[in-house]
């Protein structure tokens, strides 16, 4: 189902979905939203990606992070080379900018496995439960920091708990989607 319109639209909407899901997660304590809904929204662009490009390409493009450097020119000074590389990396952050492939070298390769995010989310939630134990409260008692963060507002262990739920739900749905759409 590779259509150029959805594929182009997804490029634009991808960061939007991610920010929106995070917004839903943060506002959850006072308005409709929260970790569960936020997590579900977070996976929407990924699922679109799978639908458009197929699971293998999604895996290669979104979960396989390759770090490239430029090929070094002959007799190039260190400074110049580093500066060129920094510019090259920065350009990589712009979603619609495709970099020339000819003169780059693979430096490192990371794989993000959704199955591994599940325990991370679970441990964050568990951690939110364990923190109050140190101040003598019962397991999973909500504790709140005195200071407020800009944009996010009050920070407490319940937010940490919700972030755990958010990550776990997103990873669970993502993993199911990836497994099911593979041949």
């Amino acid at each position: 189902m590779k259509t150029i319109i959805i594929s182009a639209a997804l490029r634009l909407f991808f960061p939007l979905f991610i920010f929106f899901s995070f917004y839903i997660l943060i506002r959850g304590h006072n308005h409709p939203g929260g970790g569960f809904i936020g997590g579900l929204i977070l996976v929407i662009p990924f699922i679109f990606h799978v639908l458009i490009h197929g699971a293998d390409e999604t895996h290669d493009k979104l979960f396989l992070k390759r770090v490239y450097s430029l090929r070094r020119n002959e007799q190039e000074s260190d400074m110049n080379y580093y500066l060129r590389n920094i510019g090259y990396r920065l350009r990589g952050l712009v979603p619609w900018y495709s970099r020339p492939d000819a003169d780059k070298v693979l430096v490192k390769q990371f794989v993000i496995e959704p199955l591994h995010i599940i325990p991370v989310g679970l441990s964050l939630s568990l951690l939110a439960g364990l923190i109050p134990l140190f101040s003598g409260e019962a397991f999973l008692t909500g504790l709140w920091a005195k200071a407020q963060l800009p944009l996010i507002g009050k920070v407490g262990t319940t937010l940490l708990f919700d972030i755990g739920v958010y990550l776990l739900v997103a990873a669970v749905v993502l993993k199911i989607t990836l497994v099911m759409s593979k041949e």
Partner: peptide, 20 residues
Amino acid sequence: AKGRNIVNVILVDYRAFDTM
């Protein structure tokens, strides 16, 4: 519990153990 959305507060605070 410092939250206005009761549903969410139930999920992450009152009944957090269930959610866990």
